[in-house]
Design a protein around this nucleic acid. Structure first.
Lengths: 119, 119
DNA sequence: TCTATAACTTGCATTTTGCAAGTTATAGAT
DNA sequence: ATCTATAACTTGCAAAATGCAAGTTATAGA
C-alpha cells in the first residue's frame, strides 16, 4: 500500500485486506492451512495468480510470513504473524453477523468461534 | 449477488460488502450521515458513480433503505436497516485491530466504540 | 523414461473502478 | 425573467483488478 485513503482505521484496514480474497486467505490460515495448495483447494476457488499475489501483498503488509519448510526444491509454508492472528476477532464478528443475518451460512466450528487471540 | 462463492459466512459477507467502498458507506451511516452529498464529502473521496452503485447494491442486499425526505424534487435519505446496524460490531473490531496494529490510524470517538447494537 | 506434485508465472479476456463531464429539477438572488 | 447554485444522479471512456487457461521449474517415485 503506498498511501492509505485516509487515517480512518476502517479505510486503512480495507486498503490492506479489503478485497475479494485477502480475508479468505487469512481465514484459511486461522484454521491451520499453511501451504499454497491448501489455499487453492478451498471451496471458493481462488486462482493461482491471485493467490500468489495476495500472499505477496499480505507478506509485505506484515500479516503473513513465508518460511521454507524444505530445501531442494524450496517449498514454503505461510503463517500468520502476530498482527495477522490479531484479525481473529474481526473474522469472528463477521461470522456472527452472517450467521445471524444471512440464512444458510455455515456455522463455524466452536473451536474457531470460541478461540481467543493469544496476546 | 447472484450466488455466494460458498456457504462460508466470511466468504458470503465479503460477496456482499467485501469491496473497497461498501463498508466506508456503512461507516458513514453508522455515524449519522444519511445523504448522497454527505457520503461524497467523506475524506476518502468516493466518486459519484461508485456511490450511486453501492447505495443501490446495499439497498438490494437489505442493508440500507432509501426513503424520500421531500418531494418536488424528490430527495432521498439513506439509512441502515436492522441488518445494516448489526454490522456495528464488525466495524468496531476492525477499528480495534487497526488502532492496535497500524500506527497513526485515528482513534474513533468513544461514542462510536462504546455503542451497543440495539437488538 | 514417464508420470505426478508443489509452487508458481505468463498472456489475454472480462469485470470493476476511477475520472471528468453532463443532466434534471428546483430554489433563491438580481 | 434570467442567472447561479445545489442535490442527486447518469454517461462515456480509461485504467486497474480479477478470472481463465496454459506453461514453467524442480524433484520424487514407478
Amino acid at each position: 500500500m503506498l498511501e492509505p485513503r485516509s487515517g480512518c482505521p476502517i479505510a486503512t484496514t480495507l486498503d490492506i485486506i479489503g478485497d475479494k480474497w485477502s480475508m479468505i486467505v487469512v481465514r484459511d490460515m486461522l484454521v491451520g492451512k499453511t501451504r499454497y495448495n491448501e489455499f487453492l483447494a478451498s471451496p471458493e476457488g481462488i486462482t493461482t495468480n491471485i493467490l500468489a499475489d495476495r500472499l505477496k501483498r499480505l507478506e509485505q503488509a506484515g500479516i503473513v510470513e513465508k518460511t521454507p519448510y524444505q530445501e531442494r526444491p524450496v517449498r514454503n509454508s505461510y503463517n500468520l504473524t502476530e498482527d495477522g492472528e490479531a484479525l481473529l476477532p474481526v473474522l469472528q464478528e463477521i461470522c456472527r453477523w452472517a450467521n445471524a443475518r444471512i440464512p444458510g451460512t455455515w456455522i463455524p466450528p466452536k473451536s474457531f468461534m470460541d478461540r481467543r487471540p493469544e496476546r
